[in-house]
Nucleic acid binder design. Structure first.
Lengths: 230, 230
DNA sequence: TTCTAAAACGAACGTTCGTGCTATATTGGC
DNA sequence: GCCAATATAGCACGAACGTTCGTTTTAGAA
């Protein structure tokens, strides 16, 4: 029964999906700047010039709206950070690309309020529930990806055996959060170069001779995306 | 006139100040866990079993309540982190103490929701106004203190001349925020030892021979406050 | 004990919140 | 062009929000 009307249901769903997407686009933008709780249904409706109830019907509850918003943000993050990094070969080059693109993703304000997930994590880390769980799992994915790339780089002989993937991933992630914090609170663009430098230092410290050749040269203005002015 | 009734006014003020303090004690606790916006006057009143209006009269507006809460949190931070660190001599020992005690301050849940200011900064970095400004200036104080201690350590010949105070302070602060993030979101206590290790690595890297003797030894379980289990 | 100013209260204000219900447009398949 | 499904709107609800008001309680000075 459910499968029988597959084609019809899919066609029928087209319009609703478009609105849903339009809603989520704004929702992600608002939530990144004012928080997932500050994301109000009335506010969202008026910003899209539609009725509260009409908008509400798409989600059924505020929590579902929040979850959908988180999912939409994840899609954007994958498109803007993960995918570009996977155009680079695995191991150290990809690891560095992940860090570099992440800094650009904050600096270029892919989300108005900086890193969507850093903001959501800070907001929900004290409120148990599905939203918190989802945000936590997404950020775990991210750190796991860093960790995995470090392990790959080590296995490929680009990082020394003494490089602890979990430890290094923790440090890289911390530097990212630090840069995000400084930029959001002070508009401090220098934070990106500071984070970049610190990341490179960490990577160089554990890099083998062949690994070193895969990292950007020392010095300023060396044409990397994250070090370029806007 | 105003000065003339000094003694009287002071006596008269006593009771009000006590309640005010009692209010702020709870306010800080609630705000650290649920945010300064989630800090609701009604909620706060019922938690203290007093009337909304009675509580409200102490502050005059929600924003004033938030500002007073931030100030109260700053007092606690100074008492719990800054003051203990100043029992140690300036330079590298104090710098390390600041980092170490900061980790303990998060781990021991001086505030229920972790670092009060990290949470407040994330919440208000997109909302211009007095609260944001105050939070920003307090965090600036903190980073400036790290930076100052680094400069002192360098001037005392404990850190090499190549140690950039601003850069190093950024990194130490980032590691702190990373540890706070991991602990709040995942309850991950290992984050503290990770941050600790990374901090020590950064300091050792720039330490002179005499500076090295002022830092804890390598290895596990070396009796530092932040590395002890609870 | 009496007086007075501070402190606390209780009730209500106007808004906005999230969430239901019911009715009307809009749409794609026949 | 009609039908059935879907999408949107309109309206109302109860609760909670920050805030104001006039009144009552309370504690310290006289």
């Amino acid at each position: 029964m459910k499968a029988g009307r597959g084609k019809v249901a899919q066609a029928r769903k087209a319009r609703g999906d478009r609105t849903r997407q339009a809603i989520l686009k704004v929702a992600v933008d608002v939530a990144s700047a004012e928080g997932l709780e500050g994301l109000t249904i009335g506010r969202l409706a008026s910003e899209l010039s539609m009725s509260k109830s009409g908008l509400f019907a798409h989600f059924g509850s505020k929590e579902e709206l929040q979850l959908a918003t988180v999912e939409a943000a994840r899609d954007i993050f994958i498109r803007e950070v993960i995918r570009p990094s996977f155009e680079t070969g695995e191991g150290l080059p990809r690891l560095w690309k992940l860090c570099d693109v992440w800094l650009a993703y904050v600096r270029d304000e892919v989300f108005r309020g900086g890193c969507f997930f850093a903001a959501a994590a800070a907001e929900f880390d004290g409120r148990p529930g599905p939203v918190r769980d989802r945000v936590a799992s997404i950020m775990k994915e991210w750190v796991a990806m860093l960790r995995g790339s470090i392990a790959e780089a080590r296995d490929a002989g680009q990082l020394n055996a003494d490089a602890d993937p979990a430890q290094l991933a923790f440090e890289l992630n911390a530097l990212e959060m630090g840069a995000n914090w400084a930029f959001q609170l002070y508009g401090d663009r220098q934070a990106f170069t500071r984070a970049r430098e610190a990341m490179l230092e960490r990577l160089r410290r554990h890099a083998t001779a062949s690994g070193l050749r895969l990292l950007p040269q020392t010095g300023k203005g060396r044409g990397s995306r994250a070090s370029r002015a806007r």
